[in-house]
Design a protein around this nucleic acid. Structure first.
Lengths: 330, 330
DNA sequence: TTGTAAGCGTTATCAT
DNA sequence: ATGATAACGCTTACAA
């Protein structure tokens, strides 16, 4: 690979002059510039971004930290961010944690050593974990809030869930069972359960407000505990029951579970998800779910990160509203 | 951030000695080393990977170039590769092309400027495009072959499709319609259609070998042209017909299409996909498809790339066998 | 307008 | 065992 030095030698000028030509800097004779640029073309010069990064202290690389790519709304988010970033000349370094806190810490340290200009993280760690990391670059946390200092962008999960219960109630359901992730276990392991908790809070508010589960209170299943789901379902004694699931993947699992037992959806039991995964349109009955504008959100996240990188302040807390996406599962 | 220079000053030794301590190099007094390492701890020293990269000429970063993350088998591939790579101390730079050749070229150039140690690409470009790029680092192409020189890892799509037709024939189908991507259009645009073509070749072999489509020959739909699908379906005049789709996403679209018209699957029409997307288990009837060991393939791809990076030769052509994954859509 | 040289934070070679 | 210094390829401030 040809370097600036090579070109300088080839043209009989100094490295500084070549730099002026290449980077359109002022103070260079158009003639000289033209001559240099011809050589640049000839030798197919490509800048060494590593050297540039070292010299400038900026890498034009963004770090992305996610659980995994199995949820297609995460994949969509990564996709959108990558596309915008590339447009703006930024690169994406991807780190997957699989929900393991140690992996997240390791990943962040890696990104810090790699001198990325900013980080977007769907965190599994909490404030205390992040304090120890001493992060000195812009960070935006999404879905899970870390602290009041680290900007957060997410969805208004709480009111979404509350509204969902209202919608379910309107469909004449008398009971709504929440299928959450194994939140208790996660809390015990010191993991960040912000969005799970928000969703659960919304559920609890919803059942109170809509007089759902009368005499039973909140009915929560943690994890895909089908046995408990069956028990809770039967306990309803013919009352119209729905399962509100923390995410579409869970909803699809529950749907499949009941289908295998010849319990019909929505005739015998209602199901609702959260995320608006693209695949929900392929299942029958089509899943009713909660969605939001993923592309818009991704754009906002990227724009915010750019603002931070350029030294501007951004709101500490941004939430996108959710909409009920009607299907036939209720 | 503390640098080696800082530590050297703090310890009253030279930078070379600090380097010896930090990187476990020989020729250092254990006492000195201990003293230095304590300071390293204290100041929370983290190596600057950018500076390391510049000095060593290696970035320990791998470039991944894919169409997008919408297909969950691609997402799974990225996921697996990222996980293995991180274990080995390699980083992932992700580039998405959305099937646009110019984006791919730009992306590769970016990665080259970023001095990644190797590239894994699901190419949309062809040999001629790659020749111009003058790539001087290890590259592995997956799914689509670029040339005889650039190592390729893929699946044995041709025999898989042939076998699929055999399987469909065993299910008493008399007609099989291939739903391919818009391959003609892509060929015209100069895009790489290797795997699409392989799959189509397998289809053609299959129908000949199994006496399918007698009197009709190969019946191929390009793209999700539902009108043409309907026409071809009706043309069958009650003969048992199946749609063999180039990928699961297409299969699910076709499935949905027929369901909407109250044409039953598999009673009235059979459907088969390719990819073994994880979501196929959620749809009813469960999709019959062709699958392969994605994790194994990802591991092989990574291992090969490491071999190349370390100067070893690897096979130019590696294909993984596919298996028929039975569902209820045939 | 052009050249020079220090600096970015490492690594690596050659003295001492 | 330790130190000094060039080198990696670029940017940038300053000098000519």
């Amino acid at each position: 690979m040809a370097t600036i030095k090579d070109i300088a030698k080839l043209c009989g000028v100094s490295e500084g002059t070549v730099d002026r030509a290449i980077n359109d800097r002022a103070g260079i004779n158009p003639e000289t510039k033209k001559r240099i640029m011809e050589v640049v073309e000839q030798v197919n010069y490509k800048p060494d971004r590593i050297a540039q990064s070292l010299a400038k202290g900026k890498t034009r690389t963004l770090g992305l930290i996610f659980f995994d790519l199995n949820n297609d709304f995460i994949a969509a988010l990564v996709d959108t961010i990558e596309t915008i970033a590339k447009e703006k000349g930024y690169f994406i370094s991807l780190v997957l944690t699989h929900g393991i806190k140690e992996e997240e810490i390791k990943g962040i340290n890696y990104l810090l050593e790699r001198k990325v200009d900013g980080i977007i993280v769907f965190p599994v760690g909490k404030q205390s974990d992040y304090q120890e990391l001493k992060i000195n670059i812009p960070v935006i946390s999404i879905y899970n809030k870390i602290s009041d200092e680290i900007p957060y962008v997410g969805v208004d999960a709480q009111s979404a869930m509350r509204d969902a219960i209202g919608y379910i109630a309107d469909c004449q359901y008398e009971r709504v069972i929440l299928v959450n992730s194994s939140i208790t276990k996660k809390v015990k392991s010191g993991l960040n359960v912000y969005t799970l908790q928000e969703r659960q809070k919304g559920y609890i508010e919803g059942i109170e407000k809509n007089k759902i589960n009368e005499g039973e209170g909140s009915l929560i299943v943690e994890g895909l505990d089908f046995r408990r789901m069956d028990a809770l379902y039967r306990q309803g004694q013919g009352k119209k029951t729905a399962f509100l699931c923390i995410c579409d993947v869970f909803a699809l699992e529950v749907l499949t579970h009941f289908r295998e037992q010849a319990i019909r959806v929505p005739e015998d039991v209602g199901i609702m998800g959260f995320d608006n995964m693209s695949i929900r349109k392929y299942v029958s009955p089509q899943l009713t779910t909660l969605g939001y504008h993923m592309t818009e959100m991704a754009q906002k996240i990227f724009a915010y990160l750019m603002d931070m990188i350029h030294g501007s302040d951004i709101p500490k807390d941004t939430s996108f509203p959710c909409q009920i996406i009607e299907g036939n599962s209720l």
